[in-house]
């Protein structure tokens, strides 16, 4: 197996095994979404209107919550030094870890989203768009999040700082993602929003591995 594949496989396995946190992230997603009807009332008309926003904001929070384990555990047990010293360029290591993070958060969240859409009385006609938007948008969250995770890797209680750094950078993905689902709900074309979301993904994929790898090297000094 290539080193790139080995890192993905290892991180996915670690995420799924005991204490890995993948299931907790998904439970967080489900529980937090159910808080909204309790908070704003069971009015289905209101819920179906704000449903896309709720799903996206909570998906964003779930992704952010699990970011601190992207590099922090490897930093604390010395694995990060060995990853940095491996023949694979650190930029590709970062990309592999982003993929693994997405496979254990973004992808399951995407799969779960229609079930939660049901709870929020979201129009079933919008489900394909919802899933497609999450499929394009959640990798952006993992990629941009890797910068925050790498910058805060040596910081004690860096989780909150990480959220502070990453949240403003998440906003374009949030906006395009919600607008796409809103458009589908209103029977309009979601295409322009999805294309913009895809453009955001391309920019993130091209640039974040460099920034995150630079931040990791700095924190290994």
């Amino acid at each position: 197996m290539t080193a790139f594949g080995a890192i993905i496989l290892r991180d996915v396995k670690l995420g799924l095994r005991q204490g890995g946190g993948t299931y907790w992230t998904l439970l967080f997603f489900v529980l937090t979404v159910t808080l909204f009807p309790l908070g704003v009332g069971p009015d289905l008309a209101l819920l179906s209107r704000i449903g896309p926003g709720i799903l996206w904001v909570v998906a964003l929070l779930a992704s952010m919550l699990s970011l601190d384990r992207m590099f922090q555990a490897d930093y604390e047990d010395g694995s990060l030094e060995l990853l940095a010293l491996a023949p694979l360029p650190l930029e590709l290591t970062v990309l592999a870890k982003c993929l693994a993070h997405w496979l254990t958060t973004g992808l399951p969240v995407t799969v779960l989203a229609p079930a939660l859409g049901l709870l929020l009385a979201l129009d079933p006609a919008a489900y394909p768009t919802l899933m497609l938007a999450l499929l394009i948008g959640t990798p952006v969250l993992s990629l941009i999040g890797s910068i925050g995770a790498a910058l805060t890797v040596g910081v004690r209680r860096g989780g909150v700082l990480l959220s502070l750094l990453v949240m403003p950078l998440y906003i374009p993905a949030l906006i395009f993602g919600v607008l796409a689902v809103d458009a589908a709900v209103d029977g309009l074309s979601a295409r322009p929003h999805l294309l913009l979301l895809a453009a955001d993904l391309l920019v993130a994929a091209a640039l974040t591995p460099w920034a995150a790898a630079a931040a990791l090297r700095l924190n290994l000094e």
Binding site: P168, I171, P172, I175, L196, D200, V203, L207, T208
Partner: peptide
Amino acid sequence: VGSVNLPIIHFSVDW
């Protein structure tokens, strides 16, 4: 990273 993102953020908020 912020300066790469600021135009994207501005555009998305305008959008």
